[in-house]
Design a protein around this nucleic acid. Structure first.
Lengths: 230, 230
DNA sequence: GTATCCATTTATCATAGGATAAATTAGAGC
DNA sequence: GCTCTAATTTATCCTATGATAAATGGATAC
């Protein structure tokens, strides 16, 4: 041996802020891999600290998880998405395409998807709350703009129907399914994702106009027959 | 008190076959609800038996889970689906519509979806194996028939591309997403699912023709430029 | 009615798991 | 270099968990 390698080449004591960051990022990777039931002892091991130290930084496992949710879901939301959807210098098809491509690229990670599904299965309201946000901040204006470009009644005149929302949820779910197969089902999805997204969105944009026209025609027909129910 | 109610109004000892059925169906409901990490004691409690009795019927929790998978996934597969796709008395669009509507109705249950995702997160190869079956038994013939009806080269002449499979996975995922939101995300999806499926499939069928033509034209153009790569 | 079999329960083991209290020691400030 | 704060570890508690062995008792055969 040429020289004694000191037992700790890296800093042993960290500032609380640094240690906390380390715990949170370790927790994200750990809980994504083993699920939210993962043990605090194993988490501590992976980070390279002792288990009670976790409790110095987070009073309970539950609160550590809350922090993980905040980090992964709240902090990765891009307010620019809302601006993009509102930008009328592009067609709504193009705006939606750009939104979905950037959104899916953002969430299509091991951490994001696996923790999201684990939280849902555990009974947390995280996925429902998150999707409500997507619905109100993105899908609602997208549908309004689609109506406008298609020359259909504005939502103020004829409220957006659950059916129309389902069309948007449909393409959204179609794209998400690539990530589900990759990170939840553990499958190969080797194809170029950009091309796949473009093709899917093409197919959607081709089909959505006619179908929306039909849905609205039916809705208006029902309204004429029975003006009480909308 | 009018009369002594006997402590056991229902049969106490069951035949092994009956008890086994009871354990399996209890296990399906239980693991769907609490996840595959659910405890054997709690499962036994719900069934109304003691925990060691489980081990008389299944040597380990792992083997009980295998049996659950078999019951939920293998036994609910309908061979008639494969026949339906092959039935040329209907257009491929109609065949695909009927398949997806019956398939989604079959799998869109609390048990099926939650155990499927739990198994995926746990790292089991169940979802990948299951979806491979869907791909080879259903999606492959669907694409072949679509090619035929669109007057495009048969798969023997020009192999089905990953991109084309992704189109089918797309609509499939779009429909599945209704169940995901309902049973994994715990959201309300109160809309009439038949109508939603029809609208989604309409949009897909409207869009898929043009997109497949384009994909194949591009593929053939690439083949002309560089005949080595397909 | 009694003997026998086997379905079921009681008792128990060994390890894992979240959480807390007390002991230790790195390193910044002077 | 010494002191003292607080970052970190060691030791420990109590309950949960998969699994096994031994004890119990209900029902069928004769």
């Amino acid at each position: 041996m040429l020289a004694d390698i000191p037992k700790r080449t890296i800093k042993y004591r960290l500032s609380p802020a640094e240690r906390e960051r380390q715990i949170v990022s370790g927790a994200i990777a750990f809980f994504a891999e083993v699920g939210l039931d993962g043990q605090t002892r194993e988490l501590a091991n992976r980070i390279g600290i002792t288990q009670p130290l976790l409790y110095r930084y987070f009073p309970s496992k539950e609160l550590l998880l809350e922090r993980v949710y905040e980090e992964v879901y709240d902090k990765r939301w891009k307010p620019e998405w809302e601006a993009l959807i509102a930008d009328r210098s592009l067609s709504i098809g193009e705006r939606f395409r750009r939104f979905e491509k950037d959104y899916q690229r953002t969430i299509m990670t091991y951490d994001w998807l696996r923790i999201f599904f684990s939280a849902g299965l555990k009974g947390t309201d995280l996925p429902a709350r998150y999707l409500s946000r997507v619905r109100s901040l993105i899908f609602t204006p997208v549908l309004a703009e689609l109506r406008r470009e298609l020359g259909l009644p504005s939502p103020e005149v004829l409220p957006l129907s659950a059916q129309e929302f389902e069309l948007i949820f449909g393409i959204h779910g179609a794209l998400l399914y690539v990530g589900i197969r990759k990170f939840i089902y553990n499958m190969d999805v080797s194809t170029d994702q950009e091309l796949v997204f473009d093709a899917e969105i093409d197919a959607f944009l081709t089909g959505v106009g006619p179908v929306m026209r039909r849905l609205i025609a039916e809705q208006q027909a029902r309204a004429r027959i029975d003006p009480k129910k909308t």
